[in-house]
Amino acid sequence: MSKDGSRLGLILLMAPLLLWLVTLIILPHIGLFVVSLSEKVGVRTYETGFGNYAVFFTEPLYWNTFARTAYMSIMATALTLLIGFPVAYYIAKLTRGRSKTTLFLMCLIPFWVSELVRTFGWMILLRETGVLSSFLQYLGVINGPVEFLYNDFAIMTGLVYTSMLFMVVPLVTTLDSLDDSLIEAGYDLGASSLSILREIIIPHAMPGIVSGCIVVFMLSLGNYLTPILLGGKDSLWFTGLIYSQFITRFNWELGSAFGFLLLGLSSVIVFAALKLTGQSLGKTMGR
């Protein structure tokens, strides 16, 4: 009786999760996969095959766009980590109580407005007639208006800004759990600040670094709005390619194949990065 009761409870608890997984993730993906496997051979005639996937590897534009997207995302991840780590360390270790909460909230507040609004904010700052250009002209650094938008620098700025919270939160959590006396013990035993960072703080924060990097990398790779708005026509972002296949070209078959390639290749990159740094997903999630 009670066993049946607990089983019913388990099913009820799992139901929303399963419903979400099945209807919103698994079913659409099965649909996409089926679509990606059908090749268009004539008007309204389709064959089943991997032709759409072959297109990706034979056409250099697609392949290069993906490589560029991956490279830019890795750079954005590294930059976010470099900027986010000191911020997280400051919040977790050097502040107490009220100011800690305030600083944490200040990291969070930009995320109360939508990504679109935040990106438009950057456009106001960076465009030809924008704040930065006007300010530099006022200072006399530049003579005429300069366009800061629509280049890789603008895309990178936008990506790092958008991802910062997702790096800072896991880092603050792991750094918070680092016992202060370990750092003091390091100093006491004669270590310099640099070797304490290298031998004590970073090894301890590794799970946070890994999970933060995975999230930021995936978010950057799958980001559509920021690269398109800040990078303009030349952005060449892989999600932009997928969008144009679906919406502009009405080539759902190729778009679906690209979608699956993005999923597969990004997983391969994350897996390779974990292997390369000697980390494992289980260790990261287990802590």
Partner: peptide
């Protein structure tokens, strides 16, 4: 880190990310 004193902490503060040999050798390595 330059004082000729060492401290045994209340909760010992052994480094969990290192084995015992690396813990004991930490100061010499520095």
């Amino acid at each position: 880190n330059k004082r000729p004193v060492s401290m045994v902490f209340q909760h010992l503060a052994l480094f969990p990310m290192m084995n015992i040999g690396a813990n004991v050798g930490f100061g010499l390595r520095q």
